[in-house]
Design a protein around this nucleic acid. Sequence first.
RNA 1: GGACGGGUGGCCGAGCGGUUAAUGGCAGCAGACUGUAAAUCUGCCGACGAGAGUCUACGGAGGUUCGAAUCCUCCCCCUUCCA
Length: 417
Amino acid sequence: MDKFRSELLSVLQERDFIYQCTDIEQLDNICATQKISGYIGFDATAKSLQVGNLSVIMLLRWFQHFGHKPIVLVGGGTSRLGDPSFKQTARPLMSLERIQENINGISKVFAKLLKFDHSPKGACLVNNADWLSDIKYLDFLRDFGCHFTVNKMLSMDCVKTRLDGGDPLSFIEFNYSLMQAYDFFHLNKEFGCVLQMGGADQWCNIISGVDLTRKLSRTPVFGLTAPLVTNASGMKMGKTAAGAVWLNEDMCLPYDYWQFWRNTDDRDVICYLKKFTELPMDEIHKLSLLEGREINDAKTVLADEATALIHGRQVLDGIHAAAGAVFGADGDDATLPSFKLNRDQLPIALDDLFVLSGLCASKGDLKRLVTGSGVSVEGQVVTDPKQLVTIDKIADKGLLLSVGKKRHIKVVVNEQK
RNA sequence: GGACGGGUGGCCGAGCGGUUAAUGGCAGCAGACUGUAAAUCUGCCGACGAGAGUCUACGGAGGUUCGAAUCCUCCCCCUUCCA
């Protein structure tokens, strides 16, 4: 399918958001002629979503942009089942409070990226705990269980890989797709939702939902998946040394968030510009012509746009200044992540300071880094980790601690103690 | 319920009584080179400690032994096969 009638699918195709669809032609026709409502489900397993979730969030954003109604489903119900994959110790199931806390954290990101209101295209956020919690097992089996055959479930890719040689598959996991299928049916009934979107890994769950809803509601409904975004080295994107790159500000500072995008592999820049920014395609095309070190300009654009989307454009000046101070010749490093030290903690040995600030895990860690010339203070390579830092060194300008070329923290003295 | 094979550091995976904090590989971190890129090369890579060193660790609990990831007993979990 190369030409779409609907603006939505045209844009999605242009930006490589389309991986699989249950019936792309009919979906295209419907999107071209009417406004529909569609949803994506998210787990409530952490207090924030991460960069890995961002591409499907952008999908919802485009969906709303073209006048359709996005529904965000958080899996408050399905998360209650916990992570069923068998680790050494069975992980305790998450408490209801914890899940609610996670949902609150997650909603903050959506509030920035989607418009929530009561207009026809206003987004809404639903929690599947609201309808899954009260399900009676017997009723569920009788009303819905008959629509699933084990034969079919066993033949699904995601199940099959687990059965032959992979990790064991618990009955809980095996039931996830039933729960998700029921979600779709429920949203179709309550909100007239006709489309479920998601990452490519959700395909089998999505088609279960499409099947079930078609059977029971006798209305055409669709499933659409976006390719999983990997980086050029084939890894899942969004993982760094520190773990996942979070979208919530309190879990990942805007400066670090910007740096994450700025450090994108050359080969991924254009792909990311398409997926994680809303820059017009002709501008992206211009950027794609850059070569050699000029690609860095494209990375800056990517970092700016991606950061502006969730942290606001006003943070960019400070970030640019800080990046200039650290990587370039000039700039003001006031926006760098900082660490406050009480006046009575001074003087302090460098190793203690690095550990306190969180740049190093331990003094041993710092010592090893120093041996490899990986530590510097105000740009000077450190050779003696026991050196004392006195108040006049920090003074009013602070002290810049660095590990490697990219991790920096500004130490300042906390005046009111 | 029975039989067989398994459970080793973030992951994969060797080791099968002492030189084992445990070979390799991946991932990660730092250095060199660069463009805050990739590739490549070098170093680091359980925790704590300035250091000598101390502690913790090969599914769990006991035991044998001067000494156990390695042998024995019981328990838990997983794969495959049989019921």
